[in-house]
């Protein structure tokens, strides 16, 4: 008899609720009965307007915030089953917080990236390998690795901080607004690094962002949050086809999708489900018989 294999999600969120400043006049409900699952080898995007509970949720994945109610399962086991072991969860679930460049403190970028792996108790050689590998993911060269982190540009600092979490080789990589406040080139290099990390490790990646363009371009699966609840889940076609519902909760669909939708409604023969400028270019060229 073969055992029945149930495909298990990497992370399962079960009926999770959370309240800030409970019992005071400043009480705010941050999460209200959340149920979710996060899969491996996939980039999951979490979108939602400010104050919808996204940041609280992502801090629960690695045990920085403990749910008031409900459970967070990692590989099927409750991460809070033994609160003393929560440190181990943090090595498995790597969290890059908002503006992570403000966490840099070491004398060199190299040493800063090595901070996480050192805390894991890895040996020197392994740490060295990981530092150069992860610096490679985010596009930092030997030149930058030897500098002080405070001498880097804003975008480089951000990438160094992200590499610092990647160097722990987490099975789940969570990034809260990884590209906020960067120029387009900076955004692209950060997201490329994230995709490289996912392809090389097969990790489950979770990205929180306000940029619908970035989410449409890089995410395989989307979770939409509104008012402390899960509003919608699905792949990008499912989510972005509900533009009116998204607008109701203060969100938007990618600009290019709007353009294509308008073209489609004006009688041009293009698909409505186009989410990146590259895809739009391809569709339009095809329409006019052009080649590039």
């Amino acid at each position: 008899m073969t055992p029945v294999r149930i495909k298990m999600s990497k992370i399962t969120v079960e009926n999770v609720s959370y309240v800030y400043s409970a019992g005071t006049p400043f009480e705010v409900k941050a999460l209200d009965d959340i149920n979710l699952s996060i899969e491996e080898n996939r980039i999951t995007g979490i979108i939602g307007h400010t104050g919808s509970g996204k940041s609280t949720l992502v801090q629960m994945f690695n045990g920085l915030v403990r749910p008031d109610e409900g459970r967070i399962l990692l590989d099927g086991a409750d991460i809070w089953e033994n609160p003393k072991e929560i440190g181990k969860v943090r090595f498995k679930v790597g969290l890059v917080m908002q503006y992570p460049e403000y966490q840099l403190f070491e004398e060199t970028v190299k040493a800063d990236i090595a901070f996480g792996p050192k805390n894991m108790g890895l040996d020197e050689d392994e740490i060295k390998n990981r530092v150069s590998e992860c610096a490679g993911f985010v596009g930092l060269g030997q030149n930058e690795l030897d500098k002080s982190p405070f001498d880097l540009s804003g975008g480089q600092k951000r990438r160094a901080a992200i590499a610092g979490v990647m160097a722990m080789k987490p099975e789940v990589l969570v990034l809260d607004e990884p590209a906020a406040g960067l120029d387009p080139a900076g955004r692209a290099s950060i997201f490329d690094g994230i995709v490289k990390y996912k392809n090389s490790t097969g990790a489950a990646v979770i990205i929180v962002s306000h940029s619908m363009e970035d989410m449409a371009k890089y995410c395989d699966y989307l979770i939409v949050m509104a008012d402390a609840k899960v509003f919608m889940t699905g792949d990008r076609d499912t989510v972005f086809s509900n533009s009116s519902q998204l607008e109701n909760i203060g969100l938007d669909i990618p600009q290019i999708t709007k353009v294509m939708t308008l073209l489609c409604e004006a009688g041009v023969n293009v698909s409505k489900s186009i989410y990146t400028v590259e895809d739009a270019e391809r569709a339009l060229l095809k329409l006019f018989g052009g080649v590039r």
């Binding site: 690695n62 440190g87 943090r90 917080m97 403000y102 901070f115 996480g116 979490v165 722990m168």
Partner: peptide, 16 residues
Amino acid sequence: EETQKIMSAQKARGAD
């Protein structure tokens, strides 16, 4: 708030 954020960030990198 800043202190808590930085502490969380370093905890996330395994600081104890």
